[in-house]
Design a protein around this nucleic acid. Structure first.
Lengths: 228, 228
DNA sequence: GAAAACATATTGTTGAACAATCCTTCGTCA
DNA sequence: TGACGAAGGATTGTTCAACAATATGTTTTC
């Protein structure tokens, strides 16, 4: 039972009562899922979780409501809650969002910070040379988050975070398929070159095509994994 | 106490237990707020509401979690929950989102349905001639929702609905200021003309400028109302 | 008149209880 | 043996009542 293993070392709510216990529980579960300690498809039993984290079922439920709204977990009535495992439809949804938001941010975002993007590239290249796959994946996601920050909208940033969280679920669900991120580092770098030159619409177009290819590649691998 | 008046004729949860009582309660409150029966700033007391709707405080809380995530209500710890009243910052956030999503949908949305947009225009014009302000406002919002549908992303549609719900809160908070929508009907119509001609990028630019002016106008009226 | 202390009301959280539903297991029957 | 159906168990859905924590309002004190 791999779930229990992940539950065993969960932080307990100790004497100090947290301001918002529900939000705190949601944050803990969210990070556990993002890190891959709770894999897609895993069941989150109310009884086990409430006992493991030292909170009541009611409070746990409030956390579930938050996470379900973030689409990190899936609630099936009278069956329970499970870590979401996005399929091909989910991936298509993810890229439908990204294909709109990211080019728009590149082309029209009022708060574009090219230097910050360049800094992320440097970080990604360093991680690539170190062979640190996880760190590079993080840097890659950070790049896209930074790009969306150009929109100046916290709602859009939030949505992008949600979508990137689902992306992590897709990767976790594939059980460490080949390295997707490494050859995107230089594509991101070329975007920065375009943006620094002020060719923002051109950058948006390049980004759009880049997202199309990424989606196609991901879907291919996903279908292979499903066929297996 | 205007709150109690709005609470008095709330539907009660009768014998038949709803599948998801929390979601049902959230839906009822959401519509009451959207219709303006619960005005921005109104306090939603747990005790009063749970009694009025015939559900327990716990279930009501789950509904609050949903609505808070939709930014329809604001939760202040140990103080209570209130109907959100977006200020100038909120309006700027709203338009930051719209300025990205809507032009992107117009320019690049894969599922653009010009006929559907034209149909909404027809409806809006009819309402305008009838002098039905509410119906025209609805049609106007429907136009923008239909536009975002072109993105093919349910996440973006959801975000747009959230944003438009906040727009309604802004209008309700102003206590029926002058008619904002009527002279936007023809602007929307000119957008449809551009889109039908295939000039999608041009339509996106026009839309962007239109949103800029709408935001400026709204902010002016809002500041006047605040000064009052 | 201002600050501290108390009183009150509301939210935050918990535990237990019961109903509703699903899954499993067992028994029956062909 | 295999399929169909019913009893049983486990989990979720919902409610209730109680207590703790916190903010507000009032009174007391200097």
């Amino acid at each position: 039972m791999p779930v229990n293993a992940a539950l065993s070392n969960l932080p307990l709510a100790e004497g100090s009562t947290h301001a918002h216990t529900g939000a705190w529980v949601a944050a803990v579960l969210r990070s556990r899922i993002a890190e891959g300690q709770l894999l897609p498809g895993a069941k989150l039993s109310e009884q086990a979780l409430s006992a493991a984290m030292g909170v009541s079922r009611n409070t746990l439920r409030e956390a579930f409501a938050v996470l379900a709204h973030e689409l990190v977990i899936t609630r099936i009535p009278n069956r329970g809650v499970f870590v979401s495992s996005p399929g091909t439809a989910g991936v298509q949804e993810i890229y439908a969002v990204r294909r709109m938001i990211e080019p728009a941010a590149a082309a029209w975002g009022p708060d574009l910070d090219v230097d910050a993007l360049a800094a992320v590239i440097v970080e990604a290249r360093a991680a690539l040379q170190d062979g640190d796959i996880d760190k590079m994946a993080d840097a890659n996601q950070c790049f896209h988050e930074e790009l969306v920050r150009a929109t100046g909208s916290s709602h859009l940033q939030e949505l992008m975070s949600k979508v990137l969280a689902q992306m992590r679920l897709v990767f976790h669900g594939m059980g460490h398929a080949p390295d997707f991120h490494s050859h995107y580092v230089e594509l991101n770098a070329s975007l920065v070159v375009l943006l620094r030159a002020g060719k923002r619409v051109q950058a948006a177009e390049a980004l759009s095509g880049y997202l199309d290819r990424a989606e196609a590649e991901l879907l291919t691998h996903l279908r292979d994994a499903e066929d297996h």
